[in-house]
Design a binder for these strands. Structure first.
Lengths: 242, 242
DNA sequence: GTACATAACTTGTATAAACAAGTAGAAAGG
DNA sequence: CCTTTCTACTTGTTTATACAAGTTATGTAC
């Protein structure tokens, strides 16, 4: 449950947009109308609207109002880059069935080469998890995670089959706060061919990420390799008018 | 020049981080210290810091302070997905030489199929521009743009060789405000092989975008096809602590 | 009728202030 | 010496208010 006012207002308005209450180009109710409806100040409303703007739902226009520019995408499964969302959460939102198979689950000690790749310190004890994600029956995604061993005590392969994030957040009470992601395209390697239904494709869309918890330590390095026809990543940006 | 206080504070602090005044993990001065330094309220400081957090420079930690988590990347040219930045601007920032060659510059009328792809209305008069970008001598990027003809009167092939955005903003006084971007990986097609130095690669990292001006009309559809070894896109995200 | 001023909206920026909640170190107690 | 308590910090949320600036429609003067 959202704990703050602006978060619950954000969620409410977002739900209304996703439900199709507004068509592309419509103006939202004005900020003042929202203050009456939600019983709060303009600041709080503006904060919620700013989040939705950041995510590409809205286009505020000085003096006129706030326009809804969201339109549902079709064809590919959409994973928004705009927020930290686990694959499980994204799959639920896209209403697709996702099955996870853990193919490797072992402890590793970070060496020079791995440190270069992941950003962990040499000698650090890591938990290495490799998972295949089946979406609607097809093996589409190969997920590789390195977790800081010390922060993931109690994590089992069985839990990894479901949602690791849910475990870390709900059971261990960890707060995942910030992540940095890089998007690249890469040639398929042996492991991709071995585990994924690549069809005619010999390349993958790769999302690499470092995740920080609220203690400020980087506790996860992730690589997510996607068959390119089934996914796309969306992002919105707001240019500072110079 | 930044017109608002929070923008100039944002720029000042960002410059200090990029200049290397703080190393990975350092705490920034507290918000209260910044209010004294910049002579403004905490809200204004927080707004500037929020932007830097959004871009992945900072990790604020409740009760402790704001940690700098930025570290310079190496290897690939980085194009941040976090802001609307033209290729020319990104190239300047990465200090690489970029040459642009216009290979097509013609008027088109939007038909059914093009409308499906770009989101423009059928019958709309469009300006179609195709450009090859050479970075450090290699043809790396194939750029395809469809502009609303009515909004780009006076645009010539010669201007397109430089920066279209600079022209639109400085000469035509247009404000580019919001863009929606999709990231995918796609198989190379004939035109890619014809115009780009693809080397052994047979696929591309593709960024597709719709750009809205401050009048709220979508006035540009962009597709940018990149040889995958030379670029990567980075993005930061902040998870709402549930 | 057309042009211009005006009024009533809208969003954008900034200040000021209060309290909540997390952190860390000093002080006090055993 | 160790533990607990308190205090002084930090960031996080929210209210209230004021004014700036862009848009639109209305009404007035010509």
């Amino acid at each position: 449950m959202p704990k703050s006012k602006y978060e619950s207002i954000y969620q409410t308005i977002k739900d209304e947009i996703l439900a199709g209450n507004y068509v592309h180009g419509d103006l939202l109710p004005s900020e003042n109308e929202y203050t009456k409806r939600f019983g709060c100040t303009r600041n709080t409303i503006r904060r919620a609207l700013a989040m939705l703007t950041q995510e590409g739902f809205l286009l505020p226009r000085h003096g006129r109002g706030v326009q809804v520019i969201w339109q549902p995408q079709k064809g590919r499964n959409i994973f928004s880059l705009g927020g930290i969302e686990s694959l499980r959460e994204a799959a639920d939102r896209n209403q697709v069935s996702m099955k996870t198979r853990v193919v490797r689950f072992e402890e590793r000690i970070c060496d020079e080469k791995l440190s270069e790749q992941t950003g962990f310190d040499v000698g650090e004890h890591l938990l290495f998890v490799e998972r295949v994600r089946k979406i609607n029956g097809e093996a589409i995604i190969l997920d590789t995670n390195y977790f800081l061993k010390s922060e993931t005590e109690g994590l089992t392969a069985e839990i990894a089959e479901h949602s690791i994030y849910r475990y870390l957040e709900e059971v261990r009470g960890m707060n995942i706060t910030t992540s940095l992601r890089r998007v690249t395209a890469e040639k398929a390697v042996k492991r991709d061919y071995r585990y994924l239904d690549l069809q005619e494709y010999d390349f993958l869309l790769v999302i690499t990420g470092q995740v920080f918890n609220s203690s400020g330590v980087m506790f996860e390095y992730t690589q997510s390799r996607h068959r390119p026809d089934k996914v796309c990543f969306i992002e919105s940006a707001v240019r500072k008018t110079v």
